[in-house]
Design a protein around this nucleic acid. Structure first.
Length: 288
DNA sequence: TTTCCTGTTAGTGT
DNA sequence: AACACTAACAGGAA
């Protein structure tokens, strides 16, 4: 699920909740122990009694800073969720989309943080692709060295973007947008949407893009992500924000997941192709 | 029942 | 080097 807007939404939600919380106990589902580093044992031992101080995001990774020179990195991969339960837990029934599991917490809980004030933070993950990593703050920069600029950073300028297209002129535009070492945070949903708003077929090679299209792509990356954050992300399958509620952006999707349906702009049928192994949907009339 | 699909990405093979 | 494909895992849809 989670691409930049979803991770950002979770970050904003948790930033108002977990700072100051002190860990009383952590439970890890046995089969998930191999996804905890440096090891489940060290993770438990080190974190017991520590406090969360701050929540940040880089690319699609959440960073929980602690009251020592350490942080916990959380990558949700395809189906990870973080859900916060205050002490006085209203039963959260916020539309968990997996049938029969409308009530949180459910059986897909992999890690549970219990805080001294009775609140809890759940890491849920159906497919168990995600991971939690305890890391020294001084090592974080090295860990993130692989990522390209954040789309909202000054570093991500039109000049940078044009240069990046020039350096990858034979690649398909969608492949470029998906590469985290070029631009951080876009995934399958928002790359499709950015291409639609820019009138560009996702399989167009970047050398064939006009100057105008390059500008459109650049601006639409920011526009689409900004709107998606405002809508609290897209709930396609298992994504929930940190209150356990769904995002709203799926209501305004133009092409992602809509192949076979009618283009909202021109009425033609949305088509699909595979790019970098990902299903990509586009309108054959609006995008060229 | 079986087959194919799914938000990510590291790793392997061509 | 650049690219395509698969595995990691589980459940839903057809």
């Amino acid at each position: 699920m989670p691409e930049l807007p979803e991770v950002e939404t979770i970050k904003i939600g948790l930033a108002g909740k977990v700072p100051g919380k002190k860990i009383r106990a952590i439970w890890i589902e046995p089969s998930f122990k191999k996804k905890i580093s440096p090891s489940a044992g060290k993770f438990l031992r080190f974190l017991n009694g520590k406090k969360f101080t701050r929540v940040k995001r880089r690319a699609k990774i959440l960073v929980f800073e602690l009251n020592f020179d350490y942080s916990i990195l959380v990558h949700l991969k395809m189906t990870g969720q973080l859900v916060y339960y205050p002490k006085k837990g209203k039963a959260l029934t916020g539309g968990h989309p997996i049938k029969g599991h409308e009530n949180q917490p459910d059986r897909f809980a992999r890690v549970i943080f219990q805080f001294t004030d009775g609140a809890q933070l759940y890491y849920n993950d159906v497919r168990k692709f995600g991971y939690l990593k305890l890391i020294k703050n001084q090592d974080i920069e090295k860990e993130f060295a692989e990522f390209g600029p954040e789309p909202f950073d000054k570093e991500f300028s039109q000049a940078y973007f044009n240069d990046l297209l020039e350096k990858n002129k034979n690649k398909k535009i969608k492949s470029i947008l998906l590469e985290q070492n070029l631009i951080a945070g876009l995934g399958n949903i928002y790359t499709d949407e950015v291409c639609f708003y820019s009138g560009v077929r996702p399989d167009r090679r970047s050398k064939d893009l006009s100057r105008v299209k390059k500008t459109k792509l650049y601006l639409n990356i920011k526009k689409v992500l900004t709107k998606a954050i405002k809508y609290q992300g897209t709930s396609v399958s298992t994504y929930l924000n940190s209150d356990g509620a769904e995002g709203k952006y799926q209501k305004v999707l133009k092409v992602y997941g809509r192949h076979g349906e009618i283009c909202k702009k021109c009425g033609k049928q949305i088509e699909k192709i595979k790019i970098s192994g990902r299903t990509s949907s586009y309108c054959p009339k609006c995008q060229s």
